[in-house]
């Protein structure tokens, strides 16, 4: 004689921790939209008309808003990932653990480096055209 409470579909609404977790998982949705947009952009390179209509699509305010959201989502996901990373891949030097805060900072520095690299490449390629 015993009972076992079943987990309902709304379990994740019961605690802030679970909601943040679901939010982390949900960051994939605007990112899927962004990827679809980029794929469509590549296909539209086939003809100038298609590219023009793609550009027009991309300029729509709600599309811009969704892409803005995708950027925020990507940064939030990066934030959660960077926080978790030192726990999944702890790095030890002798008996001492590399401070997690340092590992997080290094990862953000890497993000910054990627952005700088992009801006530099992008700037140069603009010049080349």
């Amino acid at each position: 004689m015993s009972y076992k409470p079943e987990l309902t579909g709304s379990w994740w609404l019961k605690h802030r921790f679970f909601m943040l977790y679901m939010l982390r998982e949900a960051t994939v949705l605007p990112l899927v939209f962004l990827l679809c947009s980029l794929l469509a952009g590549i296909y539209s390179l086939a003809s100038p008309e298609q590219f023009a209509s793609w550009q027009a699509f991309m300029a729509r305010p709600w599309v811009l808003a969704l892409h803005g959201l995708a950027l925020v989502a990507a940064l939030y996901h990066a934030f959660t990932f960077f926080q978790l990373f030192p726990r999944v891949m702890p790095i030890r030097i002798g008996a001492r653990l590399l401070p997690p805060a340092l590992m997080v900072a290094v990862q953000w520095a890497a993000v910054l480096a990627v952005i700088v690299l992009f801006l530099w490449l992008f700037g140069n390629s603009q010049g080349a055209i």
């Binding site: 605690h15 921790f17 679970f18 977790y21 998982e25 978790l84 726990r87 999944v88 891949m89 702890p90």
Partner: peptide, 26 residues
Amino acid sequence: CTFVGFCSDVCPKHVDPAAAVNQGKV
């Protein structure tokens, strides 16, 4: 495990089982 991470939050001995599980994934 989908790394919800709440297990480590509630652990009274700071064992951080979520870290263990995800090190286990590696």
